[in-house]
Amino acid sequence: MGIKLMKKQITEVLLASDKRKNILLLLQEGPLKMETLFESLDTTRSALLPQIKILRENHLIFKSQDTYELTTIGKLIVEEMVSFLSTAEMFGGNCEYFGTHFIDFIPPLFLKKLSQIGVGEVMEVSAEDFYDVDKEFLGKALESHEWLEITSALHPTFHDFYMEMIDHVTEVSVIITQEVYEKAKQEYYDDFKELIDLDLISIYMYPESPGFTSFIVAGQSIKFRLLTLKGVHDNKSISFSGPGALEWGRELFEYYRRQSVPIIEV
């Protein structure tokens, strides 16, 4: 019973006041003086002292000489709080998109780290313009000489797209579904065989449906085209940028590559 009451009390301490939450977040960077705290929070000493008192009474912070810092309990709680706030911000900024699209394919390990990719940008383009948007995204690959792609769809001009890409990008790796593999082999045999024989692009076959339309890692960005909750393609995509998104995207690509088979001949 005592543990349950303490948890409820700590929860109230964290959620009932933005000032207390912000104090903890500031102290995550290290010990700070009172003057630095109220200047950073744009408040007064008299307004801050009651919040400091509550945090000290709940053993989340302590005072050492003229500075305040997190206790061990405070450090553990703030670490989890930062993860929660980042995840809430990521979903909150794109709530409509994520709420209407399928994301259950994301492995649990990657769901736990989803907060690191930041807030995304949703784009809506016509179906015929999707390929042109990918060509614009190709410019990002030139920054890092890397293009990683997983796709369950095949554009009729895929050959020209990848041929242009390998002239400029050092690492080009593409994972396709078995359905795309069969379609490329049957309907675009010569073009497909040329890409395989060039040995300048790594193509893999994923044996199952990945649960999304496509996923791209290029430059410092990643981009998803997700299926709707009804399991159909639509004309929307969502992209994320930054080191956290790049690291998460590369790891997700490797997760699928490990389960895929290299295509070395047609």
Rank of each mutant, 00 (worst) to 15 (best):
155 H>Y: 12
192 F>K: 00
221 S>N: 10
193 K>A: 11
206 Y>S: 09
201 I>N: 02
195 L>A: 01
166 I>H: 02
191 D>K: 13
154 L>I: 10
243 P>I: 14
198 L>M: 11
222 I>F: 04
152 S>E: 08
167 D>Q: 15
154 L>G: 08
187 E>K: 04
168 H>Y: 12
133 V>Q: 02
181 Y>I: 01
207 P>L: 11
227 L>W: 05
209 S>W: 07
228 T>C: 03
199 D>R: 12
207 P>H: 10
155 H>C: 03
216 I>Y: 05
156 P>S: 11
182 E>M: 07
208 E>P: 00
220 Q>V: 01
197 D>R: 09
223 K>Y: 01
186 Q>R: 12
222 I>V: 12
225 R>S: 09
169 V>W: 06
229 L>N: 15
160 D>C: 00
161 F>V: 01
184 A>R: 04
223 K>E: 13
213 T>P: 00
171 E>K: 13
183 K>I: 15
225 R>D: 03
186 Q>I: 02
174 V>M: 08
134 D>F: 05
216 I>M: 08
229 L>I: 10
136 E>C: 04
220 Q>P: 02
228 T>F: 03
158 F>R: 03
241 S>W: 05
136 E>M: 08
188 Y>E: 03
232 V>K: 14
177 T>N: 10
168 H>G: 01
169 V>M: 09
219 G>H: 11
197 D>N: 07
134 D>E: 15
201 I>T: 05
199 D>A: 06
226 L>R: 03
214 S>P: 00
157 T>S: 15
188 Y>P: 00
178 Q>D: 15
241 S>V: 13
223 K>H: 03
146 E>P: 04
214 S>H: 08
191 D>Y: 12
181 Y>G: 00
217 V>L: 14
213 T>W: 00
142 L>N: 05
132 D>K: 14
157 T>P: 00
218 A>F: 07
206 Y>D: 10
238 I>F: 07
226 L>A: 04
219 G>P: 11
219 G>N: 10
243 P>M: 14
155 H>D: 15
235 N>A: 12
173 S>Q: 09
218 A>C: 11
170 T>V: 06
210 P>D: 11
142 L>V: 12
232 V>D: 13
131 Y>N: 09
141 A>P: 08
149 E>W: 05
198 L>E: 09
212 F>Y: 14
146 E>F: 06
155 H>A: 11
173 S>E: 12
193 K>C: 03
158 F>Y: 12
214 S>G: 05
236 K>Q: 15
205 M>L: 08
137 F>T: 05
213 T>C: 06
133 V>F: 03
137 F>R: 13
197 D>T: 07
179 E>D: 15
135 K>S: 07
132 D>M: 07
206 Y>P: 07
209 S>N: 13
